[in-house]
Amino acid sequence: MNLKKYLTLTRAGMIEALQFRLSFVIIAVGNVLYLIVVYFLWKSIYASAGTDIVNGMTFSDTLIYLVLATALFNFMEMYTVWEIGRNIQSGKIVLDLLKPIEYRKYLFWSYSGSFVMQFFLTFLPTFLIVAAVTHGTIPLGINLLYFIVSVILAVSINYSIDYIVGTICLYTESIWGINIMKQVIVLLLSGATVPIAFFPEGLKQFVLHLPFQSIYNAPLTILLAKDPAPESVLRTLGTQLFWSLVMMIISKLFWKVSLRRITVNGG
């Protein structure tokens, strides 16, 4: 594989992201506000509960889980659905399809630049702040390595889901509606709004068998595990790998089938 052409796209994306420096500041302000709200909300929840551990999670665990879930969300949100949808409406997609590179890859790699920037400018600072605020609740060891692997798999699953949803735009003309549905479903069922540990038992079992929990719940559980048994880590990563492959195949096939019926008005 010729990596150079992909890395050029990454570089272009980084430069583009740097054009909008102010937006990083605003995103950071938003994240800090969110952090404050989540902190106090769960603090009073735990104070009212009267016990330190609820559903196997301490206050610090919950805080880290939710804040990092948001940080991961910001980091992984690539607006793929919007991009595909708009390109279909404007007809620009024709030009992209003519490029000597698979559209799926082109889109991913043009975004990889903002990935890199988002990682350093929003995810890493959030991570460090949370690690400092909760003094040492995040175990620093081999789990960080697992966490990175897990996040990479999560990015892949998330992208495939986005791509499938984006492909639906070929049929519907609706972007906002499709995107909001996806976002709501993914955020709720992945445990990003309320940790999956708090779900009622039946719902929890159901959710654990869906691909969405592999996006946020899996990496965060791996990160927070104090003494992870190797087999449980392997099982989590294996599940992620499974979903990552399944979703990738579905998204590729769905795109291929859908492309036959594409209608572009001008462009």
């Binding site: 609820v54 609706s174 509606g177 499709i178 549905m181 709720l188």
Partner: peptide, 27 residues
Amino acid sequence: DFIISTIGMILTNVSGFIGFWILFRNF
């Protein structure tokens, strides 16, 4: 687009409510 957006909006509210409900089940 109109129908899908409306469903999307309803889903947003329903999911917000489910989150709320899950939280209060525990506390």
